[in-house]
Design a protein around this nucleic acid. Structure first.
Lengths: 94, 94
DNA sequence: GATTTTGGTTTATTTTATAAACTACTTTAC
DNA sequence: GTAAAGTAGTTTATAAAATAAACCAAAATC
């Protein structure tokens, strides 16, 4: 029997976001939008979900006069990602 | 920018099915149902989708007097799975 | 021979992802 | 200085997908 794949991470956009955040200190909304190729709306929704789950932290501030949304993966998020990857291997190896 | 993950395979149940089929000659409906832990209804729907995409072949026959649905991965399916795994690595490695 | 089980399919519901519309500014161009 | 366009998002609506529930036909069991 297969172990369940964390549904929060088993989504292309959210997985892409976490995949980026795992390797950087933090990332801005616009950077994530560009890197993932998503629309702002979709990204906004998915970031909110990751945030609600405690996988990322969303920090709102200003860059000059413009709003600036910065994201950072949390310890919980890192653990969840590692767990997800390890579970995934059950599906893709052999 | 991330490459798109084949949406047909980026589904827990369908991925589980393909994961099983890739390592066996063929598998019966009930076997897949048991191994994936899915309901018959869900499995039926997802197998149909894989079949429509040409990823698997569904063979209907009888075992004695009972209906028997047997599934086999196709060359197309194998290729799609390999492609999916390779794309996935972009997301989960580093 | 009625009831349960087997092996499914079909349809309905829920959840999820995505797109469209909107808000609140700021910058640029006239 | 004000109209138009751009930036950085959020909210809401729509489409698509996954899942569950209901159903069906035949077989096995009691």
């Amino acid at each position: 029997m297969f172990k369940e794949l964390d549904p929060l991470l088993h989504s292309q956009l959210r997985l892409g976001v976490i995949s980026i955040l795992i390797s950087v200190e933090s990332a801005e909304f616009t950077y994530l939008k560009e890197k993932t190729g998503s629309t702002a709306g979709n990204l906004s929704v998915q970031l909110e979900k990751l945030s609600e789950a405690g996988y990322i932290e969303i920090i709102k501030s200003f860059k000059g006069k413009k709003p600036l949304t910065t994201c950072k993966i949390t310890r919980t998020g890192i653990k969840a990602f590692e767990e997800y990857v390890s579970t995934l291997k059950q599906y893709i190896n052999k």
